[in-house]
Computed example of a mutant assay.
Amino acid sequence: MSPFTLSSPVTAEVEVRRSRFIALATPVADREAALAEVARLRAAHPGANHVCWALLAGGHSGMSDDGEPSGTAGRPILEVLRHHDLDGVLGAVVRYFGGVKLGAGGLVRAYTDAIAAALVDAPVVERVPETVLVVAAEYGDAERVRRWADGEGYETGDAEYAEAVRFTLRLPTSRAATARDAVRDLTQGRAVVEG
Protein backbone atom coordinates (compact mmCIF):
# COMPACT_ATOMS: atom_id res chain seq x y z
CA MET A 1 0.00 0.00 0.00
CA SER A 2 1.25 3.45 -0.88
CA PRO A 3 2.17 5.55 2.12
CA PHE A 4 0.53 8.82 0.99
CA THR A 5 -2.89 10.22 0.19
CA LEU A 6 -4.37 13.68 -0.31
CA SER A 7 -5.77 15.67 2.60
CA SER A 8 -8.15 17.57 0.29
CA PRO A 9 -9.18 17.69 -3.37
CA VAL A 10 -7.04 19.53 -5.93
CA THR A 11 -7.87 20.71 -9.43
CA ALA A 12 -6.14 22.15 -12.47
CA GLU A 13 -7.07 22.98 -16.03
CA VAL A 14 -4.93 22.76 -19.14
CA GLU A 15 -5.77 23.62 -22.72
CA VAL A 16 -4.28 21.61 -25.59
CA ARG A 17 -5.14 22.68 -29.14
CA ARG A 18 -8.49 24.19 -28.06
CA SER A 19 -9.51 21.12 -25.99
CA ARG A 20 -10.05 21.85 -22.28
CA PHE A 21 -8.81 19.24 -19.80
CA ILE A 22 -10.13 19.82 -16.26
CA ALA A 23 -8.34 17.59 -13.75
CA LEU A 24 -9.43 16.61 -10.25
CA ALA A 25 -7.54 14.50 -7.74
CA THR A 26 -9.46 13.75 -4.56
CA PRO A 27 -9.15 11.45 -1.56
CA VAL A 28 -11.65 8.56 -1.58
CA ALA A 29 -12.26 5.66 0.79
CA ASP A 30 -13.12 3.03 -1.83
CA ARG A 31 -14.41 2.28 -5.33
CA GLU A 32 -17.99 3.15 -4.39
CA ALA A 33 -16.97 6.65 -3.26
CA ALA A 34 -14.86 7.08 -6.40
CA LEU A 35 -17.73 6.13 -8.72
CA ALA A 36 -20.01 8.56 -6.85
CA GLU A 37 -17.45 11.32 -7.48
CA VAL A 38 -17.24 10.41 -11.19
CA ALA A 39 -21.06 10.59 -11.38
CA ARG A 40 -20.94 14.02 -9.70
CA LEU A 41 -18.39 15.20 -12.29
CA ARG A 42 -20.59 13.96 -15.15
CA ALA A 43 -23.56 15.86 -13.68
CA ALA A 44 -21.46 19.02 -13.18
CA HIS A 45 -20.13 18.86 -16.79
CA PRO A 46 -23.06 17.66 -18.94
CA GLY A 47 -21.49 19.12 -22.10
CA ALA A 48 -18.16 17.35 -21.65
CA ASN A 49 -17.13 14.79 -24.24
CA HIS A 50 -15.25 12.52 -21.81
CA VAL A 51 -14.85 11.99 -18.05
CA CYS A 52 -11.82 9.73 -17.76
CA TRP A 53 -10.54 8.47 -14.42
CA ALA A 54 -8.22 6.21 -12.47
CA LEU A 55 -8.46 4.97 -8.91
CA LEU A 56 -5.90 3.70 -6.42
CA ALA A 57 -7.56 2.71 -3.14
CA GLY A 58 -5.98 -0.31 -1.46
CA GLY A 59 -7.23 -3.32 -3.37
CA HIS A 60 -9.75 -1.18 -5.23
CA SER A 61 -8.04 0.13 -8.33
CA GLY A 62 -9.55 0.78 -11.71
CA MET A 63 -9.64 3.14 -14.66
CA SER A 64 -11.77 4.27 -17.56
CA ASP A 65 -10.94 5.86 -20.92
CA ASP A 66 -14.64 6.84 -21.28
CA GLY A 67 -14.67 6.61 -25.05
CA GLU A 68 -11.14 7.87 -25.71
CA PRO A 69 -8.89 5.40 -27.60
CA SER A 70 -7.89 2.52 -25.31
CA GLY A 71 -4.95 3.30 -23.05
CA THR A 72 -4.83 7.04 -23.81
CA ALA A 73 -6.57 8.45 -20.72
CA GLY A 74 -7.20 6.14 -17.74
CA ARG A 75 -3.77 4.47 -17.86
CA PRO A 76 -1.82 7.78 -18.00
CA ILE A 77 -3.84 9.12 -15.05
CA LEU A 78 -3.16 5.90 -13.10
CA GLU A 79 0.57 6.12 -13.82
CA VAL A 80 0.74 9.70 -12.50
CA LEU A 81 -1.02 8.63 -9.28
CA ARG A 82 1.47 5.76 -8.91
CA HIS A 83 4.42 8.08 -9.66
CA HIS A 84 3.29 10.31 -6.76
CA ASP A 85 3.07 7.21 -4.50
CA LEU A 86 -0.60 7.88 -3.71
CA ASP A 87 -3.33 5.60 -2.45
CA GLY A 88 -6.95 6.28 -1.54
CA VAL A 89 -7.09 8.75 -4.43
CA LEU A 90 -9.29 9.21 -7.49
CA GLY A 91 -7.76 11.06 -10.44
CA ALA A 92 -10.29 12.27 -13.00
CA VAL A 93 -10.03 14.46 -16.08
CA VAL A 94 -13.02 16.05 -17.81
CA ARG A 95 -12.40 16.79 -21.50
CA TYR A 96 -14.23 19.31 -23.63
CA PHE A 97 -13.25 18.58 -27.25
CA GLY A 98 -11.91 21.63 -29.09
CA GLY A 99 -12.30 20.38 -32.64
CA VAL A 100 -8.69 19.32 -33.25
CA LYS A 101 -7.80 15.62 -32.98
CA LEU A 102 -4.71 15.07 -30.84
CA GLY A 103 -3.80 11.50 -31.82
CA ALA A 104 -2.94 8.78 -29.30
CA GLY A 105 0.38 10.33 -28.23
CA GLY A 106 -1.18 13.76 -27.87
CA LEU A 107 -3.99 12.38 -25.73
CA VAL A 108 -1.57 10.53 -23.45
CA ARG A 109 0.44 13.73 -22.96
CA ALA A 110 -2.66 15.86 -22.39
CA TYR A 111 -4.19 13.55 -19.77
CA THR A 112 -0.79 13.08 -18.09
CA ASP A 113 -0.13 16.85 -18.02
CA ALA A 114 -3.62 17.65 -16.69
CA ILE A 115 -3.53 15.30 -13.69
CA ALA A 116 0.14 16.12 -13.01
CA ALA A 117 -0.74 19.84 -12.95
CA ALA A 118 -3.42 19.17 -10.32
CA LEU A 119 -0.90 17.31 -8.16
CA VAL A 120 1.92 19.91 -8.36
CA ASP A 121 1.23 21.48 -4.95
CA ALA A 122 -1.22 18.86 -3.66
CA PRO A 123 -1.59 18.59 0.13
CA VAL A 124 -0.12 15.12 0.68
CA VAL A 125 -0.40 13.35 4.04
CA GLU A 126 0.71 9.97 5.31
CA ARG A 127 -1.95 7.36 4.61
CA VAL A 128 -3.16 5.66 7.75
CA PRO A 129 -4.58 2.19 7.01
CA GLU A 130 -8.19 1.99 8.15
CA THR A 131 -10.45 -0.79 9.32
CA VAL A 132 -14.23 -0.96 9.39
CA LEU A 133 -15.80 -2.71 12.36
CA VAL A 134 -19.48 -3.66 12.45
CA VAL A 135 -21.08 -3.28 15.86
CA ALA A 136 -24.37 -4.94 16.85
CA ALA A 137 -25.68 -3.71 20.19
CA GLU A 138 -28.83 -3.17 22.24
CA TYR A 139 -30.41 0.27 21.81
CA GLY A 140 -28.99 1.83 25.00
CA ASP A 141 -25.57 0.32 24.42
CA ALA A 142 -25.50 1.51 20.81
CA GLU A 143 -25.83 5.16 21.84
CA ARG A 144 -23.12 4.74 24.47
CA VAL A 145 -20.75 3.22 21.88
CA ARG A 146 -21.56 5.93 19.29
CA ARG A 147 -20.85 8.72 21.81
CA TRP A 148 -17.56 7.03 22.73
CA ALA A 149 -16.62 6.66 19.04
CA ASP A 150 -17.39 10.32 18.35
CA GLY A 151 -15.18 11.29 21.27
CA GLU A 152 -12.35 9.18 19.83
CA GLY A 153 -12.76 10.78 16.42
CA TYR A 154 -13.89 7.57 14.73
CA GLU A 155 -16.36 7.78 11.86
CA THR A 156 -19.68 6.04 12.56
CA GLY A 157 -21.90 4.84 9.74
CA ASP A 158 -25.68 4.94 9.51
CA ALA A 159 -27.45 2.68 11.96
CA GLU A 160 -29.84 -0.14 11.07
CA TYR A 161 -32.50 -0.62 13.73
CA ALA A 162 -33.95 -4.09 14.16
CA GLU A 163 -33.72 -6.50 17.09
CA ALA A 164 -30.33 -4.92 17.69
CA VAL A 165 -28.75 -1.73 16.36
CA ARG A 166 -26.08 -2.35 13.71
CA PHE A 167 -23.63 0.34 12.60
CA THR A 168 -20.07 0.64 11.39
CA LEU A 169 -17.00 2.25 12.89
CA ARG A 170 -14.18 3.40 10.57
CA LEU A 171 -10.91 3.80 12.46
CA PRO A 172 -7.15 3.38 12.06
CA THR A 173 -6.25 -0.31 11.80
CA SER A 174 -3.69 0.12 14.58
CA ARG A 175 -6.55 1.01 16.98
CA ALA A 176 -8.90 -1.87 16.07
CA ALA A 177 -7.97 -4.21 18.96
CA THR A 178 -8.24 -1.38 21.50
CA ALA A 179 -11.61 -0.38 20.04
CA ARG A 180 -12.96 -3.95 20.29
CA ASP A 181 -11.93 -4.05 23.97
CA ALA A 182 -13.47 -0.63 24.63
CA VAL A 183 -16.80 -1.63 23.05
CA ARG A 184 -16.82 -4.84 25.10
CA ASP A 185 -16.10 -2.85 28.31
CA LEU A 186 -18.66 -0.12 27.53
CA THR A 187 -21.42 -2.70 26.99
CA GLN A 188 -20.29 -5.25 29.59
CA GLY A 189 -19.82 -7.76 26.81
CA ARG A 190 -23.31 -7.41 25.34
CA ALA A 191 -22.27 -5.86 21.99
CA VAL A 192 -20.93 -7.98 19.15
CA VAL A 193 -18.06 -6.57 17.06
CA GLU A 194 -17.34 -8.02 13.62
CA GLY A 195 -14.35 -7.20 11.45
Rank of each mutant, 00 (worst) to 15 (best):
L86G: 04
G189S: 05
S64T: 09
I115C: 00
A104R: 14
V16P: 03
R42C: 04
T112G: 10
A57E: 11
A117W: 09
R184D: 15
A48F: 10
D141M: 01
G157T: 09
G195Y: 02
T178D: 15
V134Y: 11
D113A: 13
A57K: 10
D85Y: 07
G67F: 06
A48M: 11
S70N: 11
Y154A: 03
H83V: 10
G195P: 01
A43M: 08
P27L: 06
G153Y: 11
A117D: 08
S19E: 08
V28K: 00
V100S: 05
T5M: 13
G67K: 07
P69H: 07
S61A: 13
E194P: 00
Y139E: 15
H83S: 14
D30E: 13
Y154S: 04
G151I: 11
D141R: 00
T156N: 08
R109H: 14
P46G: 00
Y161G: 01
V124R: 15
G153A: 09
S7K: 13
F97Y: 13
R190G: 02
L78C: 01
A159K: 09
E32W: 05
P27C: 06
V51Y: 05
V192F: 05
R95C: 07
G103H: 12
A177I: 14
D30G: 09
D66G: 12
T11I: 06
F21V: 07
V28H: 01
R17I: 02
L133S: 07
A117C: 06
C52M: 07
L81R: 02
G189V: 03
L24V: 15
R40Q: 08
G74V: 04
F167G: 01
A34N: 12
T168F: 00
P46Q: 00
F167L: 00
A149K: 07
G58I: 11
K101L: 13
V93R: 00
G98Y: 04
V193C: 02
L56R: 15
G99P: 01
G103D: 12
F167V: 05
A44H: 06
Y96T: 04
R82D: 12
H84C: 09
E160I: 12
P129E: 13
Y154E: 05
A39Q: 14
H50L: 03
V125Q: 11
R42M: 04
P129R: 09
S19H: 08
G71L: 08
E68H: 11
E126M: 08
E126W: 07
G99K: 01
G140E: 13
T5W: 12
L119A: 08
C52G: 06
R82P: 00
G88C: 10
A164P: 02
P123F: 12
A29H: 13
V134C: 09
P9Q: 14
D141Y: 01
F97I: 06
R180V: 15
A159M: 06
R75H: 10
A191G: 05
V16Y: 02
G99W: 03
E160M: 10
R18N: 10
T156L: 04
E79Y: 07
D150C: 04
V145C: 03
L171R: 04
A116N: 08
A12S: 13
A177C: 10
V145Q: 03
E152C: 14
A176Y: 08
D87A: 10
A33V: 12
A159S: 14
V89M: 03
D30P: 10
